[in-house]
Design a protein around this nucleic acid. Structure first.
Length: 944
RNA sequence: GCGGACAUGGCGUAAUCGGUAGCCGCGCCAGACUUAGGAUCUGGUUCCGAAAGGAGUGGGGGUUCGAGUCCCCCUGUCCGCACCA
């Protein structure tokens, strides 16, 4: 019988779906395991072969764990809110809900064809009101909580209020709680809520009409679309993720992620230890700076404020005023891109004012420069040009003094005027530094901190590079905020009124007045009395109030989705305690490393907050994480002659690339770099009249590795491959390509080999089944092996395979597993294996990788139940032991002969065998060997 | 500039503990069966050499009886961050 993969795969996919084979229920007593994929954004382009790479790997592991007796949760869903659907809507007027629904259907079809074991009854979509109800609910909780630095966890804001009322806590601003007005109190609390509204400098992208989070901006351009981004002060919702900075750093110790990804997160959080120091300007005025090098305080020769610093207008002397104002205005108008492009250009202006160094009592000039950032530390620095490269460049540019206070060796002082660069190293000794002179840098740091703490002018502190996450987007296609505005202040909707559903709008573009698209909504106002959404026209600011017009960003919906999978149908809670106590957290998370500074930080923060609320079971959401490598595209080119615009020259005949134009050609009309001429002519009208210069009768295309993208015609669609080779071949081939974690170009060159293996495997089983029914040549049967009595050789092959496959899966080395199967199949074919005791367990081993063919053969072998519910075979050690092993015997590292020894030979037996061998005599010459290195089953090494 | 990862045949890769480097597959070469082959099967395929033999895991050095693997330096590629005080 032929291996008819299309028929087999369709039939089993249907059967699995109808029987609910992959349904998962909580079941006490069974060990549980949660395998999660990063859910996809359903884009209009559909899946390409890069998407399933991680899904196949996680599917293999899920199926393996199930066969091992685990109750496995392996869900899938859609990250369905996002910019592309909305931009498509703006262009075509199609409602994002409609296009999203279409895309989801297409994704689902494509996913189904690959034979994944997802429990689709648990599907979540971030744009489903029953899902985003809980995104909104979490936002309200964030608003109603603050971070208690003593307890190191989130607590209800009412507790803070109570502490303030009892005087246990004093407001930082100086003004007492009791003396505050209602408004002042609300402002104060807003400064502590974990979700808060504030005027903050944001990344504003005019082209997209929205603000963006830091991880959505790269090099001053938006990640999506690559449009310019500028800094702008806007009133925005933010999440106080910085409150969790320390826990986000600490938590990395507990999880099994790659070192590189942990390092990416540590860098992003950017923890640095140092000191905060107050520098007085006058008796009434002082300002705070942050430094990681308190030991260099004796080397301060000027101070620098960022252009946004509030003190600038107060301290600037009248004669400098015009110049300073001009500089500040210039700096503020510069785009983010200009700033970043001109990082090396030094600019700045002197304010005319001076600060006093509290340790040296010197008068130090105060400057303003954009190299000091408003968003980090206090937006003000003490400049130590001798030991900081940026301060050094600034000092050189403006001719400011440079004073050495650290020397690489004790008293190795030189004239800084001769220096080419600053001495930034922390190894060395303090010099010219008063009471710390002569100390090592580390000791000097501690001593200076102790001194300033004693003087009450500063303290040890920690700073983070991480910024609070801006949570407002001026977009339509996102979760609405459960917020309305009363007397100019935000109010949360009552929890019972959730979800607050996204309203219909007439236009997805921002309004003429610059309001977000929700400004177009006819019905977008909150009636406090009837507690429902009413027409916008009814807003009277007495009983009917305006609702928030911005929506939540993409990371809102993806921050807690893994928890919702545990209990997706729950209408009363985000997820039940019963479910979360059973599943705990994600055991294995598979996805791309590009989410390292976005989703993976936000989700950890979200989870930690829910953990503080007593909802999440674990502090960290993702125990083990595997980053699948990106699959790049392999583009093909044709070469058009520059002389003759209809002449296309085969690659080998192109003598000079100057004479031709390389044109991207659709990889679907190219096979093994050979162009299909007829399909090429039919591809696009301009090629209809094409003529070719062929080599050996073929047109050979050029190729290059590029990003997989529509515009380069190099997108490999999995459906075509499934139709041509079957899902099992695709699954095996994607794994065979190389380690899951590694980035690699997509190349169909080797897919035939994998497909050939499945055909051989099919034949192996087909022969066995034919022999059973006596339809074929019985001489194929091996004497040593029949159905009830497998030969020892076959058992050896089987058990070696069990061991290898089990080890491979445990360490996620799926590419080597595929090789192992090929070897096993070849060996069993050579042995003419005809024993169900060997062939059946092999199908169980194969089923995580190639579930359809395994299932089909499993049934043909007479099994009733699905192979998915079989038991993973145990490896029996007796079959792994070789009777004898050939040992290469080496003298002084040079191999001279081999010896047959029992596999279980000991050191003594090995030595005796070597000494007894006639070959030894000439090397040892009767002497005892100096040393014998014996590696069981591998090698005997003799040192003479 | 800072941080991280990687470097093995013509290609994708393997070598799990420091122990015969190159498994498996692609490609290529030769052969078999065929009217035919983009089907199937068999054998070969790191490089140099007719062979014997020699060289060999980006380059240089070190540790070791023994290094693709460990340490130091260099080169190259990829990724992350980037005026973060």
């Amino acid at each position: 019988m032929e291996y008819n993969f299309n028929e087999i795969e369709a039939r089993w996919q249907k059967a699995w779906r109808e029987q609910g084979v992959y349904r998962t229920e909580e079941s006490a007593g069974r060990p549980h395991y949660y395998v999660l994929d990063m859910f996809p954004y359903p884009s209009g382009a559909g899946l390409h072969v890069g998407h399933p790479l991680g899904y196949i790997a996680s599917d293999i592991y899920s199926r393996y764990k199930r066969l091992r007796g685990y109750n496995v949760l392996h869900p899938m869903g859609y990250d369905a809110y996002g910019l592309p659907a909305e931009q498509y809507a703006i262009q075509t007027g199609q409602h994002p809900a409609v296009t999203t629904e279409q895309n989801i259907r297409r994704y689902r079809e494509q996913l189904d064809k690959i034979g994944f074991s997802f429990d689709w009854s648990r599907e979540v979509r971030t744009c489903d009101p029953q899902y985003y109800k809980w995104t909104q609910w979490t936002f309200i909780q964030l608003f109603n909580h603050y971070y208690d630095n003593e307890l190191q966890k989130a607590r209800p804001i009412s507790e803070l209020v109570s502490k303030l009322e009892r005087g246990v806590v004093q407001p930082e601003g100086g003004k007492a709680w009791a003396g505050m007005s209602e408004g002042e109190r609300e402002d104060y609390l807003m400064g502590h809520r974990l979700a808060y509204l504030a005027d903050i400098p944001v990344n504003w992208c005019a082209e997209l009409g929205t603000v963006l989070a830091n991880d959505e901006v790269v090099g001053g351009l938006s990640v999506r679309g690559g449009y310019p981004v500028e800094r702008k002060l806007m009133r925005q919702w933010s999440l106080r993720i910085t409150a969790y900075a320390q826990r986000l750093v600490d938590g990395l110790e507990q999880v099994e992620w790659t070192d590189s990804l942990k390092e990416i997160q540590r860098n992003w959080i950017g923890r640095s230890e140092g000191a905060a120091v107050w520098f007085p300007v006058s008796d009434a005025l002082k300002f705070e700076i942050f430094t990681t090098r308190p030991d260099t305080i004796f080397g301060v020769t000027f101070m620098v404020l960022c252009p946004e610093h509030e003190l600038i207008t107060e301290i600037t002397t009248p004669d400098r005023k015009a110049e300073v104002e001009a500089y500040v205005a210039w700096a503020k108008n510069r785009s983010e891109r200009e700033r970043q492009a001109e990082v090396k250009k030094v600019s700045g202006v002197f304010t005319g004012a001076y600060a006093f160094n509290p340790l040296t009592e010197e008068k130090i000039p105060i400057w303003v420069s954009e190299y000091v950032l408003a968003g980090y530390g206090t937006g003000a620095i003490m400049a130590v040009p001798a030991h900081d490269s940026r301060d050094f460049a600034f000092a050189r540019h403006f001719g400011l003094p440079i004073r050495q206070v650290v020397a690489p060796e004790r008293d190795a002082v030189s004239d800084p005027a001769t220096w080419q660069e600053s001495l930034d190293s922390k190894s060395g000794y303090s010099v010219n530094s008063g009471f710390v002179s002569g100390m090592k840098v580390k000791e000097a740091m501690a001593a200076v901190i102790a001194k300033i703490e004693e003087m009450g002018i500063g303290h040890r502190t920690v700073n983070y590079r991480l910024r609070d996450a801006i949570f407002s987007r001026q977009r339509y296609w996102g979760e609405p905020f459960p917020v309305y505005y009363k007397e100019g202040r935000p109010r949360m909707l009552p929890e019972e009124c959730l979800p607050l559903e996204l309203p219909e709008v007439s236009d997805f573009k921002p309004t003429a007045t610059g309001e977000p698209p929700l400004g177009h909504a006819q019905k977008w106002a909150w009636d406090e009395a009837s507690r429902c959404v009413v027409e916008t026209s009814k807003i009277d600011h007495k009983t009917v109030f305006p609702l928030e017009l911005s929506t939540m960003p993409g990371f809102a919906g993806s921050s807690g989705y893994y928890l919702r999978y545990m209990d997706p149908g729950n209408e009363k809670e985000y997820f039940s305690q019963q479910a979360v106590q059973y599943w705990q957290n994600v055991d294995l998370y598979v996805g791309g490393a590009e989410h390292g500074t976005g989703h993976l930080i936000y989700a950890r923060f979200w989870n930690k907050f829910l953990f503080d609320l007593g909802l999440a079971a674990k502090d960290e959401p993702f125990q083990k994480l595997i980053n699948q490598g990106m699959i790049q595209g392999r583009s093909n080119f044709v070469y058009r002659s520059k002389q003759d615009n209809n002449l296309y020259i085969s690659k080998g005949l192109v003598k000079n690339m100057e004479e031709v134009t390389a044109i991207h050609v659709d990889i679907n009309i190219v096979d093994n770099d050979v162009l299909d001429l007829e399909k090429f002519k039919a591809w696009r009208p301009e090629f209809a009249e094409a003529r070719f210069e062929l080599e050996d009768g073929k047109y050979v295309c050029g190729w290059e590795i590029e990003k997989m993208s529509k515009s380069m015609y190099n997108v490999q669609n999995p459906d075509d491959l499934v139709a041509r080779y079957g899902a099992d071949t695709l699954r095996l081939y994607e794994m065979f390509l190389g380690p899951v974690e590694q980035a690699k170009p997509w190349d169909t060159g080797g897919i035939e080999g994998v497909h050939r293996f499945l055909k051989k495997l099919w034949k192996l089983y087909d022969n066995y089944l034919n022999n059973l029914s006596g339809q074929s040549d019985l001489s194929n049967l091996n004497n040593r092996s029949n159905q009830s009595n497998p030969g020892k050789e076959e058992m050896k092959v089987l058990h070696q395979t069990i061991k290898k496959i089990t080890d491979d899966i445990e360490r996620f080395s799926f590419n080597t597993s595929v090789s192992t199967f090929m070897i096993c199949c070849n060996q069993l074919t050579d042995l003419k294996c005809a024993s169900s005791e060997v062939l059946k367990p092999l199908l169980v081993l194969l089923s995580p990788f190639a579930p359809h063919i395994a299932e089909e053969l499993w049934h043909r072998m007479g099994e009733g139940d699905t192979v998915c519910r079989a038991q993973w075979p145990e490896c029996e050690a007796q079959y792994l032991v070789e009777d004898t092993v050939k040992y290469p015997v080496q003298f002084n590292g040079k191999m001279r002969f081999t010896l047959d020894l029992p596999a279980a030979a000991t050191q003594e037996e090995a030595v005796a065998a070597v000494l007894g061998a006639p070959e030894s005599a000439k090397w040892l010459g009767g002497k005892e060997p100096r040393k014998v290195i014996f590696v069981p089953k591998k090698i005997i090494n003799i040192v003479c």
